[in-house]
Design a protein around this nucleic acid. Structure first.
Length: 441
RNA sequence: GGAGGGAUGGCAGAGCGGACGAAUGCGAAGCACUUGAAAUGCUUUGGGCCCAAAGCCCCGUGGGUUCGAAUCCCACUCCCUCCGCCA
C-alpha cells in the first residue's frame, strides 16, 4: 500500500498522481477522512487505557499495603472505566477496517516518468529490436518480410510435428491448458535451463512452493482485489501462484535486512496459474493464453536509490534473452492507466509472432517502489544509522515460455516443415532442428 | 491421521497474575586502558502508532477471564518427538 503519511502531507500531489491512474478524488478524500477519525479514536482509547493502567497499579499498591477498603474502591472505579474502554476499542477496530478496505485496494503512485494515459492505447513504444537491424526507434522500424511458412500459426506447426497436443490437454484439463510432447517438452526444459544459466551470475536460484497462503497473496497485492484471477484450494485455504513474484516477495516478509546484504536477487522457475476470468475467448488460440504456463522470474529487493538501476538491469536481462533467441521484439513503457495495481512503472516486452500477426507480451518488468515492501513488511537497516526503512521491490519475467515457444516455432519454420532453432538454444536443446516425430497410439 | 512437547529480544534462555518491554549469558556497537591487539572495565544494543513529548501497542496469531495477563482459559497457526501413511 501507499505511504499514508506522505498522503497526509502532500495530499494534492498524491491525489492527482492517483487520479492519473483512475482513482477518483472521493476515494482519496474518504481515505483521508477515515484516517483522521481513526487517529482521533486511537488517541481517545489510549488515554482511557492509560488511566485504567494507572488505577490498576494503584490497586496493586493498596492491596500490598493491606488497605483492603481503598483497594476495592479503586478497583471499582477502574472496572467502570474499563467498561467504557470496550466501546472505544470497538470504534477503533471499525474505523481501522474501513480505512484498510480502501487502503488495501488503492493502487501504487506511478513514477514521474511513466507516460500518463487512460488505457493501453496510451502505452509508449520505447524501441524495437530485430536480429537484422538491432535497436531501432519507433519511427525507423518496419517489419521484415516473412516467408509463407513462417506465417503458419504455431498450433499447426506444433500439431504437425507432434510436439504440441492441445486436443488431449483439453481432454485432461479443459480449454486453455497445453501439453507439450517429446521434443516439445524437451524444448521447454531447454529454454528453462537456458534462462536460469543466463542469470546465475547475480541471481540466486530458488524453487519456491507454488501453493501459498492468503497472506502471501496479500503481500504482493494479488489479494484482496483480484481474487477472481486466482485458483483457490478452498479446503486448505491455499492459492495457486499466478507468478513466482508471489512467493519470492514473501521470502523476505517481516524481515529486516542489513543494508550491506542488499541487493538481494532471486530467480525462480515455476508454473503459473491464472483463471483469466476477464479474458475468456480473447486471443486464446494455441498457446496465446493459458491457465497454466511456465515462466522464469527475476526478483530484486534493494535500497530505494538503487531501484532505477535494478529496473534497467532486469529489463536488459530479459531483452538479452530475446535477442539471443533471435526474435523481433519491442519495449513498451506502460501508461499510468495500464499499470498493474502494485506497480510504479512497468516495461512490457512483446515479441512479434509472424504466424498470428500479433505482438505477444512475453515479459513484464516492474518497479513497485515500497508498495509491496510496505504490505509485506520487508525492511532494511540503513548503514548510516537510524530506524529501519522499507526496501524497494522489482521483478520481471525472463521469460514466459508459451508465447516464446510459439514464436520460435513460427520464426524457425522451414519449407520442409521442420523448425530451425537459434544456436544459443540449440546448445541447451542438444539439436539445431525440430523434426516430425511419431506420437505413440 | 493419532499421541505428546513447544513458540519470549540477533541467538541462547529465565520469568508462570501486580512497575516486566522483560533477568542472565553470548553476539554486536561505542568509550577507557594498550604501540596495536587480546584480556579487562564501563556504557549502549527490538519493533510500531504519534510532527514531537507524554502516552499507547507488541512475549506465535486471534478471542476471553480480571481492576490488572508474557503469566490463567479457548480457538487457530507453526515447529519438534513418536506412531501410522506416503513420493
Amino acid at each position: 500500500m501507499i505511504d499514508l503519511r506522505n498522503l497526509r502531507e502532500h495530499t494534492e500531489v498524491v491525489s492527482s498522481q492517483l487520479r492519473n491512474r483512475g482513482v477518483p478524488k472521493v476515494t482519496v478524500d474518504e481515505l483521508l477522512a477515515t484516517d483522521v477519525q481513526l487517529r482521533e479514536a486511537i488517541a481517545a482509547r489510549d488515554e482511557a487505557r492509560a488511566r485504567v493502567n494507572d488505577l490498576s497499579r494503584e490497586v496493586g499498591r493498596l492491596s500490598k499495603q493491606g488497605e483492603v477498603g481503598a483497594a476495592a474502591e479503586v478497583r471499582e472505579r477502574s472496572r467502570q472505566l474499563g467498561a467504557s474502554l470496550k466501546g472505544m476499542e470497538a470504534a477503533v477496530a471499525q474505523l481501522a477496517e474501513r480505512r484498510d478496505a480502501i487502503w488495501l485496494v488503492l493502487p501504487n503512485i506511478p513514477a514521474h516518468d511513466a507516460p500518463i494515459g487512460e488505457d493501453e492505447s496510451a502505452n509508449r513504444v520505447v524501441r524495437y529490436w530485430s536480429p537484422g537491424g538491432g535497436h531501432q526507434d519507433p519511427g525507423d522500424f518496419t517489419l521484415p518480410a516473412f516467408t509463407s511458412y513462417q506465417q503458419v500459426p504455431h498450433w499447426e506447426i506444433g500439431a504437425n510435428l507432434a510436439i504440441l497436443d492441445l486436443e488431449r490437454a483439453g481432454k485432461i484439463s479443459g480449454s486453455m491448458f497445453a501439453m507439450y510432447r517429446g521434443q516439445g517438452a524437451r524444448l521447454l526444459r531447454a529454454l528453462t535451463n537456458f534462462a536460469l544459466a543466463a542469470h546465475a551470475d547475480a541471481y540466486e536460484e530458488i524453487r519456491p512452493p507454488t501453493l501459498v497462503r492468503r497472506e502471501t497473496m496479500m503481500a504482493t497485492g494479488h489479494l484482496p482485489k483480484f481474487a477472481d484471477e486466482a485458483y483457490a484450494v478452498e479446503r486448505d485455504g491455499l492459492y495457486a501462484i499466478p507468478t513466482a513474484e508471489v512467493p519470492l516477495t514473501s521470502l523476505g516478509r517481516d524481515e529486516i535486512f542489513a543494508e550491506a546484504d542488499l541487493p538481494l536477487r532471486f530467480t525462480a522457475y515455476t508454473s503459473c496459474f491464472r483463471r483469466e476470468a476477464g479474458a475468456a475467448g480473447r486471443d486464446t488460440r494455441g498457446l496465446l493464453r493459458l491457465h497454466e504456463f511456465d515462466k522464469v522470474e527475476l526478483l530484486v529487493y534493494c535500497v530505494p536509490s538503487d531501484a532505477t538501476a535494478m529496473h534497467f538491469d532486469i529489463l536488459s536481462r530479459a531483452e538479452r534473452l530475446i535477442q539471443r533467441l533471435g526474435l523481433i521484439y519491442r519495449v513498451l513503457d506502460l501508461c499510468t492507466g495500464d499499470l498493474g495495481q502494485s506497480s510504479a512503472r512497468t516495461f512490457d516486452l512483446e515479441v512479434y509472432s509472424p504466424g498470428t500477426g500479433k505482438w505477444l507480451e512475453v515479459s513484464s518488468v516492474s518497479w513497485f517502489s515500497d508498495y509491496q515492501a510496505r504490505r509485506a513488511n520487508i525492511r532494511y537497516r540503513p548503514s548510516s544509522g537510524g530506524g529501519p526503512e522499507f526496501v524497494n521491490t522489482l521483478n520481471g519475467s525472463a521469460l514466459a515460455w508459451p508465447r516464446i515457444f510459439a514464436t520460435l516455432l513460427e520464426v524457425g519454420h522451414q519449407e520442409d516443415g521442420t523448425v530451425h532453432l537459434p544456436p544459443d538454444l540449440a546448445t541447451y536443446f542438444g539439436a539445431a532442428t525440430l523434426e516430425s516425430q511419431k506420437i505413440r497410439a
